[in-house]
């Protein structure tokens, strides 16, 4: 399982980069299976860490995505509307979900090593 060390991770499997980009982990995309639909938040929306702000759907199930930080949504990955499979193919790069202007990082985010232990 791939867990880049420069990212922070939520127990609910979202990752947050230092520049405020958010996605789901390699472990999460593998557990979900083939992603067929992604519902993303509106740009400009203000969110609190822990809010449900997106949905990733695999063939069988819909999974809620939680904000790993408080702040404002500044961009969403428009590519995913036509190519949701990028979440599976490239969870840390092309498959990113949205970007935030972070005011406060979620209190219980983990570093890569801690997360890798919980997600085994």
């Amino acid at each position: 399982m791939n867990t880049p060390s420069e990212l922070k991770y939520a127990a609910s499997h979202e990752w947050l980069s230092p520049d405020g980009t958010v996605g789901i982990s390699d472990f999460a995309q593998d557990q979900l299976g083939d992603v067929v639909y992604v519902e993303l938040p509106e740009v400009g929306r203000e969110v609190t860490a822990g809010d449900t702000i997106a949905v990733v759907e695999s063939v069988k199930t819909a999974s809620d995505i939680y904000a790993p930080a408080s702040g404002t949504i500044t961009a969403v990955n428009e590519e995913l509307s036509g190519s949701p499979e990028k979440v599976n193919e490239s969870p840390y790069e092309n498959g990113w979900l949205f970007k935030m202007d972070v005011t406060e990082v979620g209190a219980d985010l983990m570093d890569a090593e801690q997360y890798a232990e919980t997600a085994e």
Binding site: S12, H13, I24, Q31, L32, V56, T61, S63, I65, Y66
Partner: peptide, 8 residues
Amino acid sequence: MTQTPDSP
């Protein structure tokens, strides 16, 4: 992310 848990 939450889904139907893979509960033991």
